[in-house]
C-alpha cells in the first residue's frame, strides 16, 4: 500500500514544480516526472505476487503471469511521452530564440 502513496507523492512533487517554477525547462522536467509517476502506478497495478514475466514458455505453460494489459498501455504511453517532450523542447527553443529568456513572467510582460 505504501508504494501507491509514494507514487502519488512523486506525482504531487511534479505538480508542485509545474505550478511554482518560472523556468520553462524546469516545467518540462516536472511534466516528465508526473508522466513517470503515472507509468509506475499503472505498472504496479498489474503486478501479481509470485507472478512471472509475461513470456510463455511453450514447453511449460502452467504458471501465474503478471497482467500484460497495463504493460501494453504503458509501453505505448512511454513512446508518446518521448514525442511530446521533444515537441515541448522545440517550442521552448523557438521561444528562447525570439525572446532571449526562459522566464515565463518576463515573457508575459514582453508582449512580442
Amino acid at each position: 500500500m505504501i508504494v501507491y502513496w509514494l507514487c502519488f507523492i512523486l506525482f504531487l512533487t511534479g505538480l508542485y514544480g509545474v505550478i511554482t517554477r518560472r523556468n520553462l525547462i524546469k516545467i518540462a522536467i516536472s511534466l516528465s516526472i508526473m508522466e513517470f509517476s503515472c507509468f509506475l502506478f499503472l505498472a504496479l497495478l498489474g503486478y501479481t505476487k509470485g507472478g512471472e514475466a509475461p513470456i510463455v514458455d511453450p514447453a511449460d505453460p502452467v504458471r501465474t503471469y503478471v497482467d500484460p494489459l497495463p504493460q501494453a498501455m504503458v509501453l505505448t504511453a512511454i513512446v508518446i511521452g518521448l514525442a511530446t517532450t521533444a515537441m515541448l523542447m522545440a517550442v521552448i527553443i523557438r521561444i528562447y530564440r525570439k525572446y532571449g529568456t526562459f522566464d515565463i513572467r518576463e515573457i508575459k510582460n514582453l508582449r512580442g
Partner: peptide, 24 residues
C-alpha cells in the same frame, strides 16, 4: 515488477530524452 518490455523501452527513451534536453 517483472516488466522487461517496459524496462528496455524506458532505458532507451530516457537516454534519447536526456540527449535532446542537454542539446537544448
Amino acid at each position: 515488477i517483472k516488466a522487461p518490455d517496459l524496462a528496455i523501452v524506458q532505458i532507451v527513451v530516457e537516454t534519447i530524452t536526456l540527449i535532446i534536453m542537454i542539446a537544448v
